[in-house]
């Protein structure tokens, strides 16, 4: 098999994006905390994702060049971690806990309700770019299951009614912008 050779020779070389001054400033701060540049890889990807919403090929190459490591090696790290997004995501990423305590407390019904209401399954984004739904391992809030983390807020003891109220509020805020 020579698949890798074919891809390597036919795929256009990805040009690095220029990192913004904010991004390089934050990455430079992280570099002061570790004795080795590549150790900052994950933190740098998180910084880029915070500013860009996700990690594009162009961002990945830019970070790899900045840290002096191969883009493939950095992509190995990027794709290993659940919370680094290598595809565009919606403005609100719903990290929906589907682990055991939430399962016992009926999270599947809540998930089905979200899916039905937004028309998306795990890994999908609504057509308006508002919501992405992702499963997440145990969020460590099991005494208040079912739970979900969205836009930095943890939502607990979820019910269908709470989901409806939350989605309506977010959608209205977007319309009013």
């Amino acid at each position: 098999m020579t698949t890798s050779t074919i891809i390597a020779s036919s795929a256009p070389k990805v040009q690095a994006r220029t990192l913004s001054p904010e991004e390089t400033h934050e990455i430079d701060h992280e570099l002061t905390l570790y004795p080795d540049r590549r150790a900052v890889g994950l933190e740098a990807l998180k910084i880029v994702q915070k500013h860009q919403g996700w990690v594009s090929d162009e961002s990945l190459v830019a970070v790899a060049e900045y840290l002096g490591m191969s883009a493939h090696e950095l992509d190995g790290v990027a794709t290993f971690f659940n919370l680094i997004f290598r595809q565009p995501v919606g403005r609100n990423v719903m990290l929906f806990c589907d682990s055991v305590s939430c399962y016992i407390m009926g999270c599947e019904r809540i998930k089905d309700h979200i899916s039905a209401r937004l028309g998306i399954d795990y890994g999908e984004t609504t057509a308006d770019g508002e919501f992405t739904l992702l499963p997440v391992p145990c969020l460590g809030d099991c005494d208040r299951a079912p739970v979900m983390l969205m836009a930095g807020e943890q939502y607990r003891n979820l019910t269908k009614e709470k989901i409806d109220a939350l989605l309506t509020r977010v959608q209205q805020e977007q319309t009013n912008k």
């Binding site: 994950l42 190995g76 290993f80 971690f81 659940n82 919370l83 680094i84």
Partner: peptide
Amino acid sequence: HTSAGRYICGEETALLNALEGKRA
């Protein structure tokens, strides 16, 4: 150091690899 979500990072040697910027 804030991680980005992988259960295996709780295994102490995987955690060290993650801290070094490698796959965990």
